[in-house]
Amino acid sequence: MQEKLIKLAELLLPNWEVNVQSIEVIQGGQMALVWKFMTDEGPKCLKRIHRPEKKALFSIHAQDYLAKKGMRVPAIIPNRDGHLYTKHGPFLFVVYDWIEGRPFDLTVSTDLQWIMRGLADYHTESIGYTPPPAAPVFSKLGKWPKHYIKRCQQMESWKLIAQKSPDDPFCQLYLNEIDSYISSGRSTLKLLQQSHYPEWVKQCKKQPNLCHQDYGTGNTLLSNDQIWIIDLDTTTFDLPIRDLRKVIIPLMGDTGTWDQELFDLMLASYEERSPLTSEQKNVMYIDMLFPYELYETASERFGRKNDIMPEELMAAFQYEERKKEQLSQFL
C-alpha cells in the first residue's frame, strides 16, 4: 500500500512546479491521504480532499482566502495551470506549505488559551469570504432545529434495537434511562426556537463567518510562538458558537464532570478576541444543553456497532445531568 501511495504522489506532483527530493506517506487511510515531500524550498504537503467536489471547492477557496488575508493557515500552492487544485479521478488534490510545530496539550492552561484565541481569530478573520461561482455555498446557518430533531429521532429508533437484546446490560440501561434525555432534547429545541437564535442567524447570513467544525488539538499547531490552524476540509458558514460547543463540551465530557473554572477560562480566552453578547451566550448555553455526549456514546454502540461498556453509558448519563444542572443556572 505504501508503494502504491508513493507512486500516486509521483504521478500527481509533476502538476506543480516543485523540485521533489523525497516523498513520505503521513496518512494513508480510506478517509485521508496526506504526503509530506521535501523540496529545495523546504517541506510541502500533498493532500487528497476526501469530500464531494463542490464541498471541497468551498473549503479550498476558503483556505486560500484566509491565507492571503494573513490568517495562519497553510498557504495553497497553485499548480502549473494556476489552479488551486488538481483533479484526479473523483478527487481533488492540493499542495500546501508544510507547517512544522508541536500539538497543543489541553490539560495545560496556556495551551488552552492559545487554542481559544486562535478559534476566535478564525471566526473573525473569515468574515468576508465569498466562495467562487463554481463552489456552492456550504452553510449550516438556521439548520440547528433539524439537527436536534434528527438526533432525537435516532435516539428513539435505537430503543427498537435495544429491545431486541433483553439480556444486554448496555441495552437495558439505555431503555431504562433514555426517555428523559430524549424529552430534554426536545425541550432544548423549544428553547432554541424561542431564543435569539433565529434573529442571529438572520444577521449572520448578511455577513457570515466560517466555522471549522473539527477544531482542536489534531488540527492546530504551535509554531514560532504562533497558532496555526490546519485541515479546513469541513469548514462551513455557521454561528461561531457551533465551534465553541464542539470544543468545550467534549473536553468537559472527557473529564467526566463539569469544570466551571475550565469553562470560564476557555470562554474568557475566546472573548479576548471576539466578545459575545449576553443574548449570544444564551444561545450557546441552550445548544450546550442538548445531550450531545450521550448521543455520541449511544451512536458508537447502535450506529457504529462498536463494543461500548454499560459503565461508559452510565458515565454519559451522569455527565449530562451535571452539565444540565450547571448550564440551567446561566439561562
Rank of each mutant, 00 (worst) to 15 (best):
M266T: 10
I230C: 03
Y319A: 02
K324Q: 12
D231M: 01
N282I: 04
T217E: 04
L33T: 13
I182E: 00
P14R: 11
D307H: 03
V108L: 05
F237C: 10
R117Y: 00
N176T: 11
L112S: 08
Y85T: 14
L84W: 09
L251E: 13
E199H: 13
K47H: 05
L289D: 10
T297K: 07
G70F: 02
Y319T: 08
R72A: 04
Q226V: 02
Q154N: 13
T257D: 08
P275I: 10
A56M: 05
G142R: 10
F104R: 06
S328K: 14
K36N: 11
N79C: 13
H147T: 15
Q153E: 15
I26D: 09
E3N: 05
A135V: 11
Y65K: 03
L276V: 14
P198V: 13
K36L: 09
P291R: 07
D97R: 15
L119C: 01
S183M: 03
G70K: 08
P240T: 09
L173S: 10
M1P: 02
F58V: 09
D111T: 05
Q63M: 08
L251K: 13
M155T: 08
E41K: 15
K44L: 13
L262W: 05
F58G: 05
P145E: 12
Y197W: 07
E312H: 09
D259N: 15
E261Q: 15
L262I: 11
L327Y: 06
L33D: 08
D97M: 06
Q260A: 08
E311S: 14
L106I: 15
M266L: 11
S180I: 09
T110H: 07
S328N: 15
L289M: 15
D40I: 12
Y285L: 11
W200Y: 13
P90L: 06
S180N: 03
L294A: 07
W258S: 03
I49S: 07
Y319Q: 05
F37Y: 06
A56F: 01
K55I: 03
Y122A: 12
K324F: 04
E271H: 10
I161D: 14
A9F: 02
Y295T: 06
M284E: 10
I49F: 08
L160P: 02
R48G: 02
I286C: 07
D105M: 01
E279H: 10
Q154D: 13
Q329L: 13
L119V: 05
P78R: 08
